[in-house]
Design a protein around this nucleic acid. Structure first.
Lengths: 145, 145
DNA sequence: CAGACTACATAGGAGAACTATGCATCGTCA
DNA sequence: TGACGATGCATAGTTCTCCTATGTAGTCTG
């Protein structure tokens, strides 16, 4: 007997959790996943404060503090004082950080390449559309708090 | 300056990692995410051995051993001896486990409900298709090893 | 300008994952 | 049939990620 599995939302999140699990194990990132996510985030929302990064990543501020310290001590990001608020500082990628991020993206690409090759054109299109919707989904969920 | 972010595969995995992060924080699951994932897995592939579960979840055997012990001691799964191999045992959901799983699915549904309400019909359709493709994706990647 | 608020850091703990390793059972083959 | 490698699982120890609670320094406001 199987419990009901019909709700689209539950199904999506379940599938995403599983794909994420697969990707974490399969894509050989060289760096911890959370740090890869952070580099990608800094790259996309530009120089930002710790609090802004935490909100955008949907994690707590202390968690982001720690992660920033890690990527900073690895030399992948740097802080500059926020002239308008001496408590805060702006986090941005270093050149080395950008290199690492590009390597992360290459690794992700390599991870899916084999499977992508087996997809039909229609499925490839669906994946592309799916990605766009998911990106919009996460972005929209920020305002929904 | 922004590094290139055009590769479909890298983009998909990045988006998925972010949505998963959002879901983990936002969906109030009551139980740890890995255990939720395990209940869902046991439900979908039926009574199975630890090794089979580990492979299907793309995790190591020791990791699955520990997780099974947790859901077992919580009363959500049970073991029965595998008659054909005394080293192994079959893991299956208990009635209570099914109840918990249904609650997990309800929580996931609640988590996305607000955002789903803001999607256009076309986007909803895209999400639905996306889910199907992702499920296929993960399933197919099993054979690609 | 005192007190509330804000931005970040630190401390401490739980969960999830890994590799390495040990033990019991299984299968096979001399 | 009995020894030996292979297999299935458990345990140990470590790393990473994340949380809440709390402390501290800087900012704003009545």
């Amino acid at each position: 007997m199987t419990t009901s599995q019909s709700d689209p939302g539950a199904r999506l999140l379940s599938a995403v959790s599983r794909l994420n699990r697969w990707a974490t194990r399969h894509a050989d990132l060289q760096i911890p996943p959370a740090q890869a996510r952070l580099l990608s985030l800094i790259d996309s929302i530009g120089p930002a404060r710790i609090g802004e990064l935490a909100e955008a990543d949907h994690c707590s501020q202390p968690t982001m503090s720690t992660q920033v310290q890690r990527v900073e001590s690895a030399g992948w990001a740097s802080r500059t004082d926020d002239p308008s608020d001496r408590r805060a500082s702006m986090i941005e990628l270093t050149d080395e950080g950008r290199d690492v991020l590009n390597e992360v993206r290459a690794a992700r690409h390599r991870a899916v390449a084999d499977v992508f090759a087996t997809l039909t054109p229609a499925e490839t299109a669906a994946v592309d559309q799916a990605t766009t919707v998911i990106e919009k989904f996460v972005a929209r969920s920020e305002s929904t708090k």
